[in-house]
Design a protein around this nucleic acid. Sequence first.
RNA 1: CGGAGUAUGGUGUAAUGGUAACAUGCCUGUUUUGGGAACAGGUGACUCUGGGUUCGAAUCCCAGUACUCCGACCA
Length: 404
Amino acid sequence: MKATQILRTSKSDLKASTVHETFLLKGNFIQKLGAGIYQLMPLGFLAYQKIYEIIDEELKAIGFLSFRAPIVHPASIWEKSGRYDDFGPEMVKFKNRSAEKFVLAPTHEEPVNLIAKKLINSYKDLPLALNQIQTKFRDEPRARGGLIRLREFTMQDGYSFHTNQEDLDKFYNDVRAAYLRIFKRLGFEVKVVAATSGAMGGSGAEEFMILAQDGSDQIAICEKCDYAVNIETLVEGDAEVCEKCGGDLKMEKTIELGHIFKLGDKYTKAFELTYDNEKGEKKYPVSGCYGIGLERALASIVETHHDDKGIIWPSEVAPFDYYLIALGEKANEEAKKLYEKLAKEGKEILFDDRENSAGEKFADADLIGCPKRLVISDKTLANNQVEIKDRATGAIELKNLSEF
RNA sequence: CGGAGUAUGGUGUAAUGGUAACAUGCCUGUUUUGGGAACAGGUGACUCUGGGUUCGAAUCCCAGUACUCCGACCA
């Protein structure tokens, strides 16, 4: 892709309240429409799609079926579950011209359970795992922190249904492992933290956290073993020593990237979702649910992968692999050829074909943060070479044009 | 939802009751290319909305809306 089409960086010293928002706004990855409401610009959407694909791929690989629920729901399905009145003011309710009642989905248990009810009749239909990556809207009283806490956001939300606890436990562990693979591919070092499943009911829950200065969660980490726990679950004065080994606990600010729950039969009971067992008896499946916030993941990648000049994308989520700069007219001709060749081979390359000064192109290459920067200039052309600079390490190597 | 503040070209700011200015961006041209270049010309804001005070309002007053920060709430 060409910079003249997609790149609109800002030279201003704009400073948002968080690092990721500063760089994402400066590089024009995102645009703010209102508090907690942002749109992804073409550049930002490229990175977002990479995240989407990684999550989708890993979850399909362990057996999730993809579905897609709507964002606007008729109020009736929420009235039926009893949550139309219970959910609280963060759920937006509205009426259309015919005074029919609707809600904007803050979560998707209601439609998912309707899908599951269609698909599950018999024990033979279990286990079943359903997944979607879809928009949620929550009218947060105070959205803040850039993309960390949005009102409209995208969430991967998966749900699984099982005949018994052992089967749920097994699948839960599969999801746990898939989540660890996802977060590794996204470039994170996550801590899996014991969490309360109180509000959701059920038998267990864990959160996937990263340490981050701008985080709004706090966890307690044991200084001796690898035990970590959300401080929300530390209520009864045991907030000072590790319950595993007795070591001292240290408080750290974190961002929660994902959350997995064993729900038991709370929701299947609430939604009257049953199956027939071998004896023909009606039983409630036990279920689990699993979620990752995509914009929050995007923001967190920037929070954990940057220097003072800009973003340093992990290779799997970078919007482009290469950022190509040409200096001088002769170099520009060669760069154009190289760009077309690499593009034809399917390489993801951003060619800075703008007429801007050299310094501006270098600064933007750092800001945008593609893993490799290619420079062609009179200097490199003297030996028919291209300079390759690694964004993360700063290491520079020269390669012959013919080797590309 | 409680407390405080802000609202002016695309962006960032100035003008404190009397002609809306500066920088940047953008457009044209010339020149320039290894770390945010230079010159020249040009473009662009009925100063958030509605009301009020005044000869006169970006400026003062009232209401609304939006945004920011602190707190509560939530993930």
